[in-house]
Amino acid sequence: MNIRTFLLAALALCALLVAGCGAAGPTTGTVVFGVTSELRAGADIDLLRVVLRVDGHVVHEDALAQKNGQLFFPREFFFSDLEDGAAVEISLEAFGPEDTERPLLTRTASTRVIGGRTLLLRVRLERECVVAPGAATCPAPQTCVAGGCSAPDVDPRQLEPYTTSWNADAEPDLCKPAPGEEPVVLVGEGQADYFPLDDLDEVQVEAGPQGGYHIFVAIRLKNLRRSGSLTVVNGLVPELGYAIEPLEVIFTLDPDEGGFCKLAGLRFRLDGERKIEELLGKVVEIEVTVTDPDGDAGTGRRAVTLSQTIL
């Protein structure tokens, strides 16, 4: 073989080789675990423990609590800029408000990184996978999917590319079905349900189980997220120039009619710097602001008259 023939053969071989005789392909990639839930944050789930592993080693642990406003769905967990072929895994344990020792549900998912690609692995917490007390769980390393035990590993070649709108086709938020619409908050009363109020309507003052005196505030709202929304109740007694200490809570909203959601049983304590005898029969200006995890907020106001008696 002469030199010219040899060079031509070498060039032809280079054209066939993907990794040779040219620039190397991307060596790192990203996997995003997109977690959604059929269980409601704040109602069914009070705490979610998360463990992220790369090649079997723990790289991150977290406990996402409803009381801190950290627990909401959907949410994303990133494994960014890892070497091609790296094994990535997420382990989730969901705990109910009544038992922080025994998880209601456990879920594991894993895959591998493909260099040059950003992949999405969807993980759904399903009601079918809730474990009743004393019932058997899936034997390790299997995990529960659609009520049955399955291998947690997913072939990365079957995964879809990640986009920021990956959850757009997920189950819509009942309390915020059309993001971008103006939030609406209506202030009412009620311990177990929402009852509407007109300005200056009388509301019953009640004695609390641990001292103090309160009224039950309820709200009806729409265009704010059902889970993870912060509700702040403020009150002012204009006649006395008395600002009542605010109440701040994060509770999951309940669906209501007409595209609204509702939240009842907000125990708003009245006394503090003022004795309750000074407040009975007075007008209180109630203001409730709800801010959701997207940063959208709505405010409702109602002036109410405190009862002359204590229940």
Rank of each mutant, 00 (worst) to 15 (best):
P26H: 10
S80P: 04
Q210L: 13
P161R: 15
P179D: 12
P152F: 15
L240Y: 06
A10H: 06
V51H: 07
V284I: 06
E189Y: 13
R4N: 07
G147I: 05
V130R: 10
I114N: 02
V288W: 12
C149S: 01
F95I: 04
G96T: 01
G20T: 13
R49Y: 14
L311Y: 12
L8S: 02
E98V: 04
T291F: 06
S37R: 11
Y213S: 02
L120Y: 04
D271K: 15
T305K: 15
K275M: 13
E76G: 00
V237K: 01
D44W: 12
L119V: 05
G115W: 12
G281I: 09
L82Q: 01
L270D: 04
S80W: 13
A86R: 14
G298V: 01
R53H: 11
G272I: 13
T5K: 13
S80C: 09
R117C: 06
I3D: 13
A192P: 02
T231Q: 05
G69D: 02
R157P: 02
E287N: 00
N223V: 05
A168K: 08
V185H: 01
G85L: 05
A243T: 10
E278N: 14
G272M: 15
A135C: 04
V51L: 08
G180F: 10
R267Y: 03
D292V: 06
L270F: 10
G259M: 10
F78W: 06
I90T: 04
D256G: 09
P152T: 15
P255M: 06
